[in-house]
Design a protein around this nucleic acid. Structure first.
Length: 625
RNA sequence: GCCCCCAUAGCUCAGCGGAUAGAGCGCCGGCCUCCGGAGCCGGGUGCGCAGGUUCGAGUCCUGCUGGGGGUACCA
């Protein structure tokens, strides 16, 4: 796709040189803020003004004269306006056919990046395998999934990993509920919902029955010993929950290349190996005094007093009882991700024929050693609250001498999902304090299940969808778009009404625009695209510009790892298409084959681009609704 | 205490140092002899406060106020 902004920027650079500018400023070209001035504008003259010691307006006029004499491709005119803006008018006669042609031929890699080909490991979801996935997990997964798609679309080799923390205390909690409180699934209750309920119940009972805490300790010890009936029960529990999570996420179009089990990391000696490395390199120390005496720690802040180092702040990696913390395991995991640990997993398929592969102990491995891990770059989609431990992992890599790996480790932090007062009230939370948002809490059962939300969305669209399958996809689109629309730094204050909206800035609106385009095309047979596109309406010209910006939108979203910018682009594209639909003559009525061919081409290009954008957002484009 | 994030329209949010700050929702009014009305068009109010940098600041810097989070021998 011809990137006009890039073309224009290069032409400006040459013209500026010709004008005698010695400095090479960063040249910004943007869609014009004032449409009367042109299609694209650049404030470059303002930047040149100082070094050239001439008024910006004068510089812009000189640049315009030079560019007019030798115009860049697809340019109809170059003008100066305002205090010194340089404006480009696009020649749509030649530009439109080019855009249509390219939009219809774009492949999976939309905009190759300079780092294309690099292997990127993206870790996301990582929901504790002891209860149903909720809204917060779904936000994580949607972000991670779209980031993965964006990286693939810019030419990276992507491996999506879902970390399964199956040795944590929360698994013990649910087991206590099932084994010692005799909790049973209710009629029609799914297994993960049942576990969520058991978890809430157990956490509640801990407060009044301290004896249960002993049972928890005992259960946890049995799980970590990896032996006996309790360990088997834990393995079965976590496997069943993981299956539930995979089903839930699949409803939203999310899948994984590899399930990484924490128990395998421990079982296969990854942790021991990592700890050995940390010891050998003197990264980990054991204070013999102070509050952390008896622990193995990674020092974070020290002061020198009388030549003696005094530990001010440190991260505990091994507790005084000899048990490693989560951060220690995460360091081991990341050494493996980068292929520098010196150990590897076995691999087997998960759930026969499913999309995922699982790590495994070597003697259970059924797959040839595949090229998992060995990342050139790692992206961890983990909420903002984990920033501190993530920094420690990065720092540990650095101190072990893996500087490059530390630099290539990126914590993609995002804000959490909270509840609006209305949503909190609907869940029975006391909202008399009048706060503007209320925290979710799995422990207290204050949460919105991912499945429950998708079900609700489906009910919402059922009446107007042609069948249940379409309704399911529309529902998934609505929810996904809602969760991706927000910037990563925004707390989503969840509100049912907003999330389930089917009009305006919503996933359903996008799907409808796509289906509408498909409908138009079905009614009119394909025609050849003329070399020159005459008689385009102003709405069609605008649409052509938006379509042409697609690769740039993808490249920017991928470079900054922000799905929300792609969501915004897609909404703009759909709006622009609807504008054309509403304001140009009905396609089937057009007699002139050339005009008809051009206009059909524009609709087809919009359809194709909308489809690609929806796919990147993880929404399966619907041809009919 | 220290660190991070946030503050833009009645509400929910976009806004990469550039021209007159935009969407959606809600409210009022308009547009169907149907290419799919889950649409389109019109109507209006706003960058928390105070400084600074800049030709130019919602955007960058400093301080303040108000919210959220982190700072565990939890994961």
């Amino acid at each position: 796709m011809p990137d006009l902004q890039e073309h224009f920027a290069r032409a400006i650079a040459l013209a500026a040189e010709q004008l005698g500018s010695d400095a090479a400023p960063v040249i910004v070209v943007e869609p014009s803020a004032v449409p009367e001035a042109g299609d694209y504008s650049s404030p470059v003259a303002f930047r040149l003004a100082k070094s050239m010691r001439r008024p910006p307006r004068e510089i812009a006029e000189s640049l315009a004269r030079i560019l007019e004499a030798n115009p860049p491709p697809y340019t109809r005119a170059v003008t100066a306006s305002g205090g010194g803006y340089l404006n480009f008018l696009v020649d749509f006669d030649s530009f439109a056919p080019e855009v249509v042609r390219e939009a219809l031929s774009v492949g999976d890699v939309v905009a190759p990046d300079s780092a294309a080909g690099v292997k990127v490991v993206v870790e996301h979801t990582a929901t504790n395998p002891n209860k149903a996935a909720h809204l917060g997990h779904l936000r994580n997964a949607c972000i991670g999934d779209t980031v993965s798609r964006l990286l693939r679309a810019t030419g990276h080799r992507v491996e999506v990993q879902n970390y399964i923390d199956d040795t944590g205390v929360q698994v013990a909690d649910v087991l206590v509920g099932i084994r010692h409180l005799g909790l049973q699934p209710e009629e029609g209750e799914s297994f993960d919902r049942f576990c969520s309920r058991a978890y809430v119940e157990v956490c509640h009972r801990y407060e009044t029955e301290p004896a249960l805490l002993d049972l928890r300790r005992e259960t946890l010890r049995a799980i970590e010993a990896r032996d006996g009936e309790i360990a088997t029960a834990a393995k079965e529990l976590t496997s069943r929950i993981v299956d539930c999570h995979l089903r839930t996420m699949a409803r939203a179009g999310i899948s994984y290349d590899l399930l990484t089990w924490e128990s395998d990391i421990i079982e296969l000696g990854f942790l021991r190996q990592a700890l050995d490395l940390l010891l050998e390199h003197g990264v980990m120390r054991r204070p013999d005094q102070g509050p952390l005496s008896g622990c193995w720690v990674l020092p974070l802040e020290e002061t020198l007093e009388g030549g003696e180092a005094d530990l001010v702040d440190a991260k505990v990696l091994i507790k005084s009882d000899g048990i490693a913390t989560y951060t220690a395991k995460d360091i081991a995991y990341h050494l493996w991700k980068f292929g520098v640990l010196g150990l590897d997993f076995g691999y087997r398929l998960w759930a026969d024929g499913g999309p995922s592969t699982s790590t495994s102990e070597p003697d259970l491995a059924t797959l040839d050693p595949l090229q998992f891990g060995h990342a050139g770059r790692v992206v961890n989609v983990i909420d903002q609250r984990q920033s501190a431990p993530q920094r420690v992992v990065k720092e540990a890599l650095r101190r072990l001498g893996f500087e490059g790996q530390a630099d290539a480790l990126h914590h993609l932090a995002y804000e959490v999902v909270a509840l609006s007062p209305a949503a909190a009230d609907a869940l029975g939370v006391d909202t008399t304090s009048g706060k503007s948002q209320y925290a979710l809490s799995g422990r207290q059962g204050i949460e919105i299940g991912a499945d429950a939300l998708l079900d609700e969305a489906q009910r919402q669209v059922e009446a107007k969808a042609r069948n249940a399958d379409t309704a399911a996809r529309l529902a998934a689109s609505a929810v996904r778009y809602y969760l991706l629309r927000f910037g990563l730094n925004s707390i989503i204050t969840f509100d049912f009404e907003e999330a389930l909206r089917t009009s305006g800035d919503s996933g359903v609106y996008l799907q409808y625009a796509h289906a509408r385009a498909c409908g138009i095309l079905q009614r009119v047979d394909p025609l050849p695209m003329p070399a020159r596109a005459l008689e385009l309406s102003s709405q069609e010209r605008e649409l052509i510009k938006v379509i042409a910006e697609f690769p740039r939108a993808v490249a920017e979203a991928a470079a900054s790892l922000t799905p929300s910018t792609l969501a915004a682009y897609t909404f703009r594209l759909a709006t622009s298409f609807n504008d054309v639909y509403e304001h140009t003559e009905r396609l089937y009525r057009i007699q002139d084959p050339e005009v008809r061919g051009v206009r059909r081409g524009v609709v087809d290009a919009a359809r194709a681009t909308l489809a690609r954008a929806l796919q990147l957002l993880g929404m399966e484009p619907l041809a009919r609704i």
